[in-house]
Nucleic acid binder design. Structure first.
Lengths: 102, 102
DNA sequence: TTGGAATATCGAGATATTTCGATTTATGGA
DNA sequence: TCCATAAATCGAAATATCTCGATATTCCAA
């Protein structure tokens, strides 16, 4: 739980927006054929919704992943990203612990 | 509650450290004579502890104040800063609301 | 009213972040 | 095998943040 890295990752409105979108798979187009069972979302879908370049979104997802907020799973040529609810919760607990008076 | 501004203010280890120090008045030298009743801490004390320049700390305290994490009270030539526990709590609630799945 | 002390503001150089397009690295299918 | 597609990485320009010293402001005390 690197709080420094996590706060940096959150310090950007688009990255926070992506985390919100990922709360609900239906914020994105339907799953690709043969990948209906996957909860994750591919980079191209996120890119389309965020309206930023492919390389920027790939970079953003890397930062969110390093921060622990998302996991990735590669299936063939696609990388599917999904939220890591446990790590998100752990981050919130850590920030509370740091910010709140004992 | 400007979450953008608050996260930016937290996106710096020294500013987070200052918020921690301010949890307990005894992290700093005793109150100046005639100001024993004040909970806050003057800029000079914070500067000494953080070991950064006066202007940097003044700037930092301004950012923390804009973010709502601290209040300031001017008494004569001194500005006393102290944590705003309610706003800190409000920020934590807001971040939770934004990060956590409903 | 003048001098000094505490803080705030200004301007600037160094460093970090944002974001892009171009390139590289997988992978799957014809 | 070769091509096309998805994603990652690279290099760079634009912008933002960090941090300082110098200066301005405010206030108290002599």
């Amino acid at each position: 739980m690197d709080i420094e890295r996590s706060i940096s990752a959150l310090n950007n409105p688009v990255r926070r927006q992506i985390l919100e979108w990922l709360k609900d798979r239906s914020n994105f187009p339907p799953a690709l054929p043969g990948h209906e069972d996957l909860e994750g979302v591919c980079v191209a879908y996120i890119q389309e919704k965020a309206n930023l370049s492919q390389s920027t979104i790939s970079n953003y997802m890397g930062l969110l992943k390093q921060a622990g907020f998302v996991n990735s799973e590669r299936h063939g040529q696609w990388t599917f990203y999904r939220r890591d609810e446990e790590k998100i919760q752990a981050f919130l607990t850590a920030v509370q612990g740091e910010l709140l008076k004992p």
